[in-house]
Amino acid sequence: MKHRTFFWFILPSLAAMFFFIALPIVSVAVQSLFVEHEQIMTEVENCGPFKCETVLQVDNEATAALREEAPLGRFNGLGTYTNRKHLAFEQVGVAWNETETFGEFMSELINLPFYKALFFTLTYTAVVTPFVIFLGLGVALAVNTLPRAIKGPTIFVSLLPMIVTPLIGALILFWMVDADGIIGATLQKIFNDPNLSLKASTPLTWMMLIVYGIWSSTPFSFIVFYAGLQTVPKETLEAAKIDGASRWQSIRYVVVPYMMPLVVFITLMQLMDNFRVFEPIISFSASAKATSLSWIIFNDLRGGDIQLFGSAGATSILTILGVAILLTPVLIRTWRDFNQKRA
């Protein structure tokens, strides 16, 4: 295809991506270097019937005018990145110097909002991903043995947790495990503890979120594995059987090796998806016990009276860097594939 034709074909799509993806990233980066204006204080003389005193008062008009004039705020350099809400260099340094063991240092670190969110995000990703892979493979192997007539309906049902809006899916689970919901109330009866609440304890909240993650992502890995199972050559399976391999052995040594590229694919998709875990935290109203990087950004933008653009920008840039690190192996691999194809 000629360069010129290519350009006209791709132009609309490229323009959309440039203006609404590339430029916002620049805008986020610029925002992260600024911080909100401080309120302008003026000395006012307050005269009562007996005496006069001067007090400091917020000058609303001047503050509003300043905000109007420079909506970005004042320049702060990398200050937002290093403050307590983000990378918190100072606090980390103090914690490092003052704690004796590594465990103590970690528990200090987890109290800082950014590291707390990062820690949850990583734990969530690390636990959900392997579960999703094993469970998905298990379901795929089991569904594959079903008679043809029930396969279709089974796949239909299996797709639901993944297709349904994350916020809604998480809410549905939340209502079931809530103190008065079916699972929550039953657990209270079993443990004979009327105050037992999954929301109140940090480990249980994390478990709930992880269970939601597994529930909503397993369908994806199931579908990919199920499609993969259809491509395993029958001859190899037959040959294994003739050689006396048991059912388990033929799964372990024939089917699983065939699935390995799919495992890599699912792992990468899961890493990307789980890294941006966000909606379940909103649905479970779990933000007191578990936060993620995406949730911090959302909270800066929607949480308080003033929108903290600088703070949200800094967290966004850090998140984008995280995604870039996660993606590097994929990019290198695709680059190699592409060069092989051209050669």
Binding site: L23, I25, L72, F309
Partner: peptide, 9 residues
């Protein structure tokens, strides 16, 4: 959400 914070202002 990282992009969204760039749109708002």
């Amino acid at each position: 959400i990282t992009l969204v914070s760039g749109y708002l202002l």
